[in-house]
């Protein structure tokens, strides 16, 4: 009796832990602050679908798994099933192809639905025309060990802080002077690799004034930790006035 209680408690605790971690998936990105921009909006929508469907599927699996463990646990005096494994015997075939096909087709259908959303989103990231604002304004981004260099259309440069106007389509042409880096602005759901001798392009269009952290998200050497910066979004007038003087 006592042992069974402990077992039941263990099972419940395990289920609770798994549901808790499942819940964490659903809460992913819930601690992020200062979200802005058209990418973030679309991204969060797509991620919402993935989370919802992933959450439902895994909870169903856990419910079924737990029920099986509880229902078919050995109890005192219960007999081995007739087809229990016996030494030296090849186990009989067990299983029904129709269930396997059902699982395959069901997962395939769900995935293809989600994939349609993904492909839309990939195309969106490729097409700056989908932004609504003025522009485009093109900024050259060059990564160095261990700082960022931003060069604006008029030739001015800033370091670590990228200053651009709101409600403008901004195109970033990202490259590096030395090793691989990765230019990331989590609040805007932006990320692109900075690769030697290659220019990668990414764009954004954001409506909220503020400071948004920039990180390097690829290991680039011993001071990788310090390679941070800020995306500073300002009113267009501020940008026009500031960029002529030395903004940095």
């Amino acid at each position: 009796m006592k042992i069974n209680t402990i077992r039941l408690f263990g099972l419940l605790a395990a289920v609770f832990a798994l549901v808790f971690s499942n819940n964490a998936l659903a809460c992913a990105s819930c601690i992020e602050t200062g979200t802005t921009g058209v990418h973030a909006e679309k991204y969060d929508q797509l991620m919402g679908w993935y989370l919802l469907i992933g959450g439902i599927v895994s909870l169903l699996v856990y419910a079924w798994f737990t029920w099986l463990l509880y229902k078919f646990r050995a109890s005192e005096g219960s007999q081995d099933p007739e087809d229990a494994p016996k030494l030296g015997e090849i186990p009989k075939h067990r299983g029904d192809p129709k269930w396997t096909w059902f699982v395959t087709v069901a997962i395939f259908a769900i995935l293809m639905g989600l994939t349609a959303g993904t492909i839309n989103m990939v195309e969106f990231y490729e097409n700056p025309e989908e932004g609504w604002g003025d522009g485009p304004l093109t900024v050259q981004v060059t990564a160095h060990r261990y700082y960022w260099e931003f060069e604006y259309p008029n030739g001015n440069k800033t370091y670590d802080n990228l200053i651009v106007p709101i409600n403008t389509i901004v195109i970033l042409e990202v490259t590096t002077d030395d090793v691989w880096h990765n230019f990331a602005v989590p609040s805007l759901r932006l990320k692109i690799d900075a690769i030697p001798h290659q220019t990668n392009v990414i764009w954004f269009d954001a409506p909220d004034v503020g400071e948004y952290p920039i990180s390097c998200m690829e290991l680039c050497g011993s001071d990788h930790t310090d390679m941070t910066g800020n995306l500073i979004l300002v009113e267009p007038e501020v940008y026009e006035n500031g960029i002529d003087e030395d903004f940095a």
């Binding site: 991620m47 992933g54 993904t118 989103m121 759901r189 990320k191």
Partner: peptide, 17 residues
């Protein structure tokens, strides 16, 4: 399940690294 999220190129843009 979290691997399926990351398989999406669009979602990977944000979660990678």
């Amino acid at each position: 399940v979290t691997g399926v999220f990351l398989s999406s190129a669009a979602i990977d843009y944000h979660l990678r690294g």
